[in-house]
Simulated assay, not measured.
Amino acid sequence: MSDLDWNQINTFLAVADTGSLVAAARSLRMTQPALGRQISMLEEKLGSSLFIRGRSGMKLTETGLALVDEARAVKNEVDRFLLKAAGHDERISGTVRITASRVVSIYILPAMLARLKQAEPAIEIELVPDNAVANLIARDADIAIRMVRPLQNDLIATKITEIPLGAYAHQSYIARRGRPETIDDLKHHDVIGYDREDRMLVAMRELGIPAERSFFSIRTDDEVAAWEMVKAGAGIGFAQQHLAADAPGIVRVVPDLPIPTLPVWLTAHQDLRTSRRIRRVMDFLTEELKALAARI
């Protein structure tokens, strides 16, 4: 048993968590046959079956159920070991994995990361556009840019700036439907908002606007799609002011609408503070995001 392979334990956990070889292979960026071989080799070493294979996926056996918590504890210790090691990495070369919302990843970060590559060509960048909060402890990402303060333990989070928001429409929409001047005017317009996500409705109710889901005649939970619909003239939407300033034909409407600003938090695991590579990227992004806020 002394030749137990950590990769096989990690594979076992991925299959246990996803319930599928296909999903686990996707999450680990492996091929399904390679992942299946890892599971088979682990089962051979342990002398027990870990999963029941069926049409509905991979179901843990009694042995698998008994071992999954122990395997997770091993994974947590390995993750912490790797974080400690990364924190003492003195190189300015290597990979930095950054996660941010789709809006930030698509509209804000590309120009910043282009400048970063010019300044630090030896740093390899992995960008993960994702609105879900990444697990920085498990190294799903090294650095996260978020619009809410992370609540995970062992994280360092710095509030970089506040980005103002506004309500906007394309000139083609205004020419067709007119320009709303008050909050009440919005009731007679095509407003673009969230579908299942209720953050915008909650914020509007806090501002004294008794909005329901039907207030939005066009609904999507993808903020990039929503902004593109605004630019296409489909309706009135909400966006960061600097995005609107850079978009041809976009006009601000109801400028007195009291929309709260959007905080920007830069986050990493505290064990990475001593990594020169991570520190360099965090410092670079801090200056870039502050510069962005300064020009709004």
Rank of each mutant, 00 (worst) to 15 (best):
R205M: 00
L83V: 06
M1Q: 07
T158A: 04
K59S: 08
S93P: 12
D79H: 13
A203N: 06
T31V: 10
A25Q: 07
L50W: 07
V224H: 05
G193C: 01
I143H: 11
D89K: 10
K59Y: 03
W265Q: 04
G249P: 08
S2W: 06
E288Y: 05
P260D: 03
A111C: 09
T182Q: 00
M229H: 01
K187T: 10
I218Q: 08
R53L: 12
K84H: 13
R205I: 02
R91C: 09
M204R: 09
Q171P: 05
I296G: 03
G193M: 05
S172A: 07
Q240F: 07
R55P: 10
I250Y: 05
E120G: 00
N76A: 14
A134E: 14
R295C: 03
A144V: 08
V148K: 05
A134K: 15
R176Q: 12
R55Y: 04
D142V: 01
V253M: 06
P210I: 01
D283R: 15
A71S: 07
L113Q: 13
D190N: 09
A16F: 09
R213D: 07
I296A: 04
R37F: 03
I92S: 13
T63N: 04
V104I: 12
R295S: 01
T99I: 14
A100I: 13
S40C: 08
I296L: 11
R72T: 08
K84E: 13
A268L: 09
I278R: 08
D89N: 15
A85I: 11
R55I: 07
L243S: 06
M147Q: 13
A232D: 13
L127H: 03
I174Q: 08
A100N: 09
A144Y: 03
K59L: 01
R91V: 09
V68G: 00
M41F: 01
Q171D: 06
